[in-house]
Design a protein around this nucleic acid. Structure first.
Length: 142
DNA sequence: GCCAACGTTGGC
DNA sequence: GCCAACGTTGGC
């Protein structure tokens, strides 16, 4: 079981739309490191849904329900996407400001590689972020 | 293969 | 709107 964080600009695709759609193909990744991360995702892995640019906060949790396959929105076969399913909203959204101010989260990729749109989250970081967001173990089983 | 120019992302 | 970080493109 691995943990991840994926970014989306709410103007392009928001958490509200994710809730409405329930299962959504995570397309449009055109960065090699992000692609590598996508291809490492396994069914059942969990990922935080982060709103970049507007909000700048973790607003939800999704589960990987279909592992990497060729991105239908890509011009060729070299880019991939996964399908993600809505798990739960984060009751108390965790802001970037909060993450930066929290001891133990200094090394998180969100801060160190601010432009990366798909990144792994260490289990200990996942735990801290869940606490900050008031996300319970029960919520994650949904 | 190097590097300047340019484009994009994303925080402020 | 600005700018830093970083990726890509294209001339040499």
């Amino acid at each position: 079981m691995n943990y991840w964080l994926v970014k989306s600009e709410p103007d392009a695709f928001s958490w509200q739309e994710q809730i409405t759609n329930d299962v959504e193909p995570w397309t449009g990744i055109r960065n090699h490191q992000a692609k590598k991360n996508l291809q490492s995702m396994k069914n059942g892995d969990l990922a935080f849904f982060y709103h970049s640019n507007v909000g700048k906060e973790i607003v939800g949790v999704v589960r990987i329900v279909k592992e990497a396959y060729p991105d239908p929105t890509a011009p060729d076969q070299k880019w991939f996407c996964v399908d993600v399913k809505t798990v739960c909203s984060v009751p108390n959204p965790v802001t970037l400001k909060q993450i930066k101010a929290t001891p133990g989260l200094e090394e998180i990729s969100l801060i160190k590689q601010s432009r990366l749109s798909v990144m792994p989250i260490a289990p200990e970081h996942w735990k801290i972020l869940c606490q900050l967001g008031h996300v319970s173990e029960e919520d994650l089983k949904k």
